[in-house]
Design a binder for these strands. Structure first.
Lengths: 189, 189
DNA sequence: GTCTATACGCTGATAGAC
DNA sequence: GTCTATCAGCGTATAGAC
């Protein structure tokens, strides 16, 4: 399992450590030791610790933005759009279980890219909320508080990174299906 | 709004800063400056930074444990128990919006109390899951994957701290009611 | 491309004056 | 009860030998 020292592998290892302890608590010496080299040697491959966070967070944030844009542009019912949002989260999270921790918990330590990140996140939430509001307007969705509906769905989806690694026996499709059912149809019999 | 320097006020201010940047990124100098004193003076009131984290996290964790124990012991339907769990989260979170951030994101920085915290959390989840399993057994709850149901509900409830401060116009009872409806009855019309 | 050596500001925490 | 002074160690990052 020993990896060659490359920028991509350093980023990946950093994401693992950031998930474990958070960005601020991980030192470059921790990271280097995990890679089997000295801290100074990391700088032959990367430019700074901050750069690692940026690479992890921004790339995933852009994946979400692209996925949401494609869902918004699609010509389907609003319930179907919500189902596609669930699938989007399950797929991205399954491929980035470590990076999702930084996206959720360490974004405030971004420096140059903080405003950009906040804009991506804000636009995402606006699109999500609009789908729900339109679904209510067309009576696809119950006439409940749309912010609470979005909050409930989105926080569940954003926390998937904590949970997917423990449930390897479920494949992504089964998880997306069950989750969709729970989130949309509820649990009441 | 200037507060006297006391252990409780230091803990409260620490919780605010921990929510903003995380435990590791907050320095004793940050905290002291927020209190209007020098870092050294903090140590007349508290024993260490670690002690602040412990006070914040363990007290809330014990509140959840006590609330859950009382729900489990109660003689009601399982759906009703779930509703009471929602109320428990809304109430505790409304009273500890800052501390909930540490409970969720900084517990891994606990030193002496880490094992105790993990036991409380694990017992809580076991109790939660049992309510759902019993609800499925009595056909109160749809026969879906009980872990996914618990995960979905619990992550939403654990994220309330991010959201309650933005929705001050909703009182705790209204929020608990709407949230219960969304989580239990779903959103599908 | 990795190493050792090094810079140097910041960290949590203590001692002792006032 | 707060202050200044101070400590030893750790933080990110660079320089230059190999």
């Amino acid at each position: 399992m020993k990896q060659p020292i490359s920028k991509d592998n350093i980023i990946h290892t950093a994401a693992i450590l950031f998930k474990e302890k958070g960005y601020s608590a991980v030192t470059m010496r921790d990271l280097a030791s995990q890679m089997g080299i000295k801290a100074a040697s990391l700088y032959n491959h990367i430019s700074s610790k901050q750069d690692l966070l940026k690479e992890i967070v921004i790339s995933i944030a852009e994946e979400f933005t692209n996925g949401m844009d494609s869902i918004v542009a699609s010509n389907t019912s609003n319930i179907d759009k919500l189902k596609r949002v669930v699938v989007l989260h399950v797929k991205i999270t399954a491929n980035n279980t470590y990076g999702m921790a930084s996206l959720n918990n360490d974004w405030m330590h971004l420096e140059d890219q903080l405003d950009y990140y906040l804009k991506l996140r804000n636009d995402y939430e606006t699109n999500f909320l609009n789908i729900i509001k339109q679904g209510i307007a067309t009576s696809e969705i119950k006439n409940s508080n749309p912010e609470i509906i979005m909050f409930s769905m989105l926080t569940t989806l954003r926390s998937l990174y904590l949970w997917i690694p423990k449930k390897e026996e479920l494949n992504a499709n089964d998880l997306a299906n069950t989750l969709t059912q729970v989130l949309i149809d509820g649990i009441n019999n």
